[in-house]
Simulated assay, not measured.
Amino acid sequence: MQLATWNVNSLKVRLQQVLDWLEANPVDALCLQELKLDHDKFPLGAFTEIGYHAAWTGQKTYNGVAVISRQPGDQIIRNIPGFEDPQQRVVAVTLPFGDQTIRVICAYCPNGQAVDSEKYAYKLSWFRALTQWLAQEKASHQYVSILGDYNIAPADEDVHDPVKWEGQILVSPLERAALKAVMDLGFHDAFRLFEQPPKSFSWWDYRMNGFKRNAGLRIDHVLLSGSLVPHCTACIIDKGPRGLEQPSDHAPVIASLKV
């Protein structure tokens, strides 16, 4: 089984890129972030035509997430239960996993804008709510994976220039502590289960030739419950789509699981 995550930065703009990618990489589930579409504008038919199902929650202009899957998902949850939030950032589905099931959660975590902003405070409160809910999800499901754009680089090795970025948004101590709180529930970073090339990133700024210079951050993650770690055989970043014309600023991350 292969699970992938990709912040597409507008599904309307990059629908064909996503369809082409799925044709070349027929993963079992693809978690998309930043759909930037009203809920009723989601192009379900385009995915149905190529043999996929979808669960999504949309929002005009901003946010929006989806799980595109080979098998239909059930027990669908949209957004964090008990956390009142107009921003559409979470969708969760349960999918077949061998003769059992796996809970797949797609998350588009807040950016935070700047460490002294209201959006930063919102980001931290959002992560607290996420962590509380994930504890419940983990207690209810044997296998859980949370995939998405976390907007946090966990460590300095995930930053192209740690000195330049020190204390800034996406790498600040409080943000990293928020991500660690999620990990402390018993989740593991699939990418770091394996030896990886240095300077491996999943996001590059459009400005200043960020991708050409590999001036990026690793902020897109596949987190696995401890029960899934023995099943994980690989995790890679596919930089190919970032080199396309009119690309998203993010690249897909793919984890392979042995059922």
Rank of each mutant, 00 (worst) to 15 (best):
S140N: 08
V253F: 09
H53L: 10
K239E: 12
S10D: 07
D116Q: 06
L179A: 03
R218K: 11
Q87M: 05
I237F: 08
T48Y: 01
W126F: 10
P86I: 03
P230M: 03
N25D: 09
A181Y: 00
F97C: 07
H160V: 08
C31W: 03
A155C: 11
L134G: 00
P26C: 15
P198G: 08
L228W: 10
N25W: 13
R213A: 14
C31E: 02
R207D: 10
S69C: 06
M1R: 14
K41T: 02
Q196S: 11
R14D: 10
A178W: 01
T61R: 10
V171H: 05
Q132N: 12
Q88M: 09
R128K: 12
Y206D: 13
W165Q: 15
L11K: 07
I254K: 11
E137V: 04
E245F: 02
E49M: 05
L32A: 06
H160P: 08
L147A: 11
A92N: 01
A46R: 03
W133N: 03
K199T: 13
S145F: 09
L174R: 11
Q75I: 00
G45N: 03
E118Y: 04
R207F: 11
A155T: 14
A54N: 06
E245L: 07
G58K: 08
R207H: 14
S256D: 13
